[in-house]
Simulated scan of single mutants.
Amino acid sequence: MAQKNQDLSSRQLLDLIGLSEEAPLDLLEDEPLDGLNGDLGAILRERYRSFIQPHRFAPGDLVCWKPGMRNHRLPRYGQPVVVLEVLETPLFDAETDAGSTYFRERRDLVLGMIWETGPGRGDFISFHFDRRRWQPWTQEH
């Protein structure tokens, strides 16, 4: 027999998706800051050069984050994802708060990955990203 949908409180909804005061989840997990003990100016310049280093992608290519460029929780560093589409005209995040890290973020690369947790585990999903943050994936990653 089908169960009737019930209205959930925000606390109940957060509990269902695994977020609660007892089990908080950082959206960007802390990772070691290896190599950031030197000259911060030099590190910033190196990251800038990496950011502007172009790569040509085509549907079917496997890609992963460039080192130091991840700005979303998923996928993890080194995890391959597949290029679904390269957008000629970038979309821009509609976030209206200039204090958000996603304010007017460029989205010109559609990537597909396997969802790893929860009820949709194993499902193929897609997200839009800024292609400047990605590089071709190899086994060494």
Rank of each mutant, 00 (worst) to 15 (best):
N5F: 10
D7I: 15
R11W: 04
L16T: 07
L16Q: 15
G18C: 08
P24C: 07
P24Y: 09
L25I: 09
D26R: 15
L28E: 07
P32E: 06
N37C: 07
G41I: 06
A42V: 13
E46Y: 12
E46G: 13
Y48R: 15
S50H: 06
R56F: 00
A58T: 05
A58Y: 09
G60T: 04
D61E: 05
L62S: 11
V63G: 03
C64G: 02
W65R: 00
R70E: 06
R70S: 03
R70M: 05
N71V: 14
N71W: 13
H72Y: 14
L74Y: 09
Y77N: 14
Q79H: 07
P80Y: 10
V81D: 04
V81M: 06
V82P: 00
E85R: 15
V86A: 05
L87S: 07
E88P: 12
T89M: 08
P90A: 07
P90Q: 09
L91R: 12
F92G: 05
A94S: 13
T96W: 10
T96C: 13
D97N: 15
G99Q: 15
S100Y: 06
T101Y: 09
E105K: 15
R107V: 01
R107Q: 12
D108M: 01
L109M: 05
G112Q: 11
M113I: 00
M113Y: 14
M113D: 01
I114C: 07
E116N: 04
E116L: 02
R121S: 12
R121E: 11
D123L: 09
F124M: 13
S126R: 02
F127Q: 00
H128C: 09
H128A: 13
F129D: 01
D130L: 08
D130T: 07
R131E: 03
R132C: 01
W134T: 00
P136N: 01
W137A: 03
Q139G: 11
Q139V: 09
E140W: 14
H141S: 07
H141F: 11
